[in-house]
């Protein structure tokens, strides 16, 4: 966090979003699309990429305009900018693949209401140079996409026995249907969070033991 005032672009600017401030696993932002569209890996990937695009484009534009947006109406301005890019993505996906568009449903348009994007606009893009915002948005977008994939892969493998539409276990596999239903989304994400918390606490404990030994 201390590097925030520094203007140089470092590896940290990018990697922040990947792990330490991962929007899904650490900050719990933008949960609605995370749980709603991750019932298959391909949906998760498409949603991740669409969100990343909006994040990048709105980040750069807001960063460019940051000196000309009046403080009082900044949130409304950000929302309008974000909504513009989401509309673009919405029409683009509709043109590229209608199947995908139908699978994602209203959730493409609901990217507007993804608090992660607004949060980034407010906390980062409005305070940093365009190139730095771009790098950070890229990291955040990558972190978001990876998190979506983590969920999408687990849910598709368990719930449908396939991965990216390719059958994995053959016809004798009895799919665990609840995993692709809404309840599965909550439970899988909860399990991932438990795993990360366990790793974190284990690392802390090992560090403590190591410190005690060297003493």
């Amino acid at each position: 966090m201390s590097k925030r005032s520094n203007d140089s672009i470092t590896w940290g600017t990018f990697s922040e979003g990947l792990w330490r401030d991962n929007p899904v696993f650490v900050m719990l932002l933008g949960m609605c699309p995370v749980l709603a569209v991750t019932n298959s890996a391909i949906n998760a990937l498409a949603m991740g990429l669409a969100t990343t695009f909006v994040l990048l484009a709105s980040g750069v534009l807001i960063s460019l305009l940051r000196h000309s947006i009046p403080k009082q109406v900044r949130i409304a301005t950000y929302i309008v900018i974000i909504a513009t890019f989401v509309t673009i993505v919405d029409y683009a996906i509709q043109a590229i693949s209608l199947d995908l568009y139908n699978a994602l449903g209203a959730f493409i348009q609901l990217i507007v209401a993804n608090c992660m994007i607004l949060g980034r606009a407010e906390a980062y893009a409005s305070r940093n140079r365009p190139l730095k915002s771009l790098t950070n948005a890229l990291g955040m977008g990558a972190g978001f996409t990876i998190a979506l994939l983590c969920l999408g892969v687990v849910r598709e493998v368990l719930g449908a026995g396939s991965l990216f539409g390719i059958d994995l276990f053959g016809p004798r596999f009895e799919p665990w249907v609840v995993m692709i239903l809404p309840a599965g989304g909550f439970i899988v994400l909860g399990a991932w969070l438990l795993l990360f918390e366990w790793i974190k606490q284990r690392k802390e404990r090992l560090d403590l033991e190591a410190a005690a030994e060297t003493r």
Binding site: P182, F186, G190, A191, E197
Partner: peptide
């Protein structure tokens, strides 16, 4: 257990609620 302090257990609860609403 200490690892469930936080969001994870809320999500699990949400999952159970969601199951019952099914």
């Amino acid at each position: 257990p200490s690892i469930t302090q936080g969001a994870a257990v809320s999500l699990m609860l949400g999952g159970l609620l969601s199951l019952s609403f099914m």
